[in-house]
């Protein structure tokens, strides 16, 4: 039981990661693929923060009388990764808009068909 509770976080992270991965590799709508990438990304964030968590620890803000803190390093890495993530998501969405303007569709197999008929 302790083993399951101790590893449950990691297993859910893997489930989320695989859901995101599946959305990306399964043929479909490009906006949905970007959402899949975002789910993958959030799963990586959860993995890092899970690794940095100390049970019974406080949030890493120095307070009088608190001895045990969570690990601040993963928080720093993920904090910047989230904002960089939204910037790259915006870039991906901009590419989707341009693809729509060039091909008239954002379904991947229709884009492939367009490429073959050219």
């Amino acid at each position: 039981m302790d083993f399951i509770i101790g590893h449950y976080n990691y297993w859910i992270v893997i489930v989320l990661m695989m859901v995101g991965f599946y959305t990306v590799i399964n043929r479909g709508n490009l906006v949905k693929k970007i959402i899949g990438l975002n789910i993958f990304q959030v799963s990586v964030f959860l993995l890092y923060i899970s690794i940095g968590t100390v049970s019974g620890g406080a949030a890493p803000i120095a307070t009088e009388g608190v001895e045990l803190y969570s690990n601040p390093l993963p928080h720093v890495l993920i904090l910047t990764a989230i904002v960089v993530g939204v910037a790259t998501t915006a870039l991906g969405l901009a590419l989707v808009v341009r693809i729509k303007e060039a091909y008239g569709t954002i379904e991947e197999d229709e884009i492939h068909k367009c490429d073959h008929t050219l």
Binding site: V83, A90, L93, A94, V97
Partner: peptide, 16 residues
């Protein structure tokens, strides 16, 4: 920078 870039991105999408 974050403030300006987020707005640049949003205005680019909205202006399109």
């Amino acid at each position: 920078t974050v403030f300006a870039v987020m707005l640049i991105i949003f205005f680019a999408f909205a202006g399109r």
